[in-house]
Amino acid sequence: MEILTGNELVSGATVYLDRNGAWVEDLQQVRLFSANETAARDEAIARTKATLRILSLEIENVTVRDGKIVPDRLRERIRATGSTTPVFDRQHLTEDDHVSI
């Protein structure tokens, strides 16, 4: 399965495209794209780019384990949870930073 992820423009926070077309912080709310949904995925990418508000837009592979979405790459798992040491909470969106497509 694939997801879309990026960083929000003002905060730089890690965000994910959710099932409602909003870019949110919570990985578990993410929209999953199956192998036969490339057209929908690509359309979401195009609409996201048009907002000019999401940077480093990437397609990432994930696996659903015990109902939890887990990125395949360690790098993405660190992006989803924050730095491992020193331990810091992730950057958060402020009220004005929310983006939808």
Partner: peptide, 24 residues
């Protein structure tokens, strides 16, 4: 939104501003 990231990126890098994993 008057300039896009492709236009802005070289400008921010000239001023020491990178985008990393979690933030700028």
């Amino acid at each position: 939104g008057e300039i896009n990231e492709d236009q802005f990126r070289p400008l921010r890098l000239m001023n020491g501003l990178y985008l990393q994993l979690h933030a700028y």
